[in-house]
Design a protein around this nucleic acid. Sequence first.
DNA 1: TTGCCGATTACCT
DNA 2: GGTAATCGGCAAC
Length: 226
Amino acid sequence: MTPHSAHRPHGRFAAAAPGPDGMRALPASFFARPTATVAREVLGKVLVSRVGDAVCAGRIVEAEAYLDAHDPGSHAATRGVTPRNRVMYGPPGRLYVYFTYGNHHMLNLVTEREGTAGAVLVRAVEPLEGLEAMIARRGRGGVEVTNGPGKVAQALGIDLRHNGMPLGEPIAVCDGRPVPDEAVGTSGRIGLAGGHELPLRYYVRGNGYVSKGRTGPRPPKRPHAG
DNA sequence: TTGCCGATTACCT
DNA sequence: GGTAATCGGCAAC
């Protein structure tokens, strides 16, 4: 299927807010809540990056929740605090960035109060601003600019040096138009064993930038006749 | 210090 | 639809 898709960026964002400086960033209290709640509520919010003199912004359309030591899919699972997952236990409203598969950076937002592990993985955004810079960094255009977690980080210029930084500068999450419940889909998280996997992945239905879940339930094929 | 695995992506068929 | 690429964290010796 071709995602004929993607609402055009319109000028709404650009007109309302030229950059991170003039925008209303979400307060830390937004992230100091149960991780699954944050993963749901972060849909529609605007991720802004200012790296290398390029201002880029995108509307979050897909996110996953990673919980504490009881969550086998989480970096905090059973191992307790390690140098790597330490940020997950820290104060909410910070960036947790890690590197995986030798090539890809993953952008997470730390949730829960300090002392409790939790993070939301930003899996896809819909570009609103700085599309040219994103395409330049990605070397590709269309939905492939940001339709996956590694792609989002690359498009926004995010890497390990941003790990542990508080949201604001140079990476921020700003308020955006809420996504109504009927527009939100859920599934198991991608890349994890589906057996006892809870529906901790949230996405905006029908949005062309949502990554194709390989382990989650397939999008309902519309029955053409029977 | 060594070896294995991973919250992925891109390319070939 | 399947597989190679490729680096850091973590566990074991």
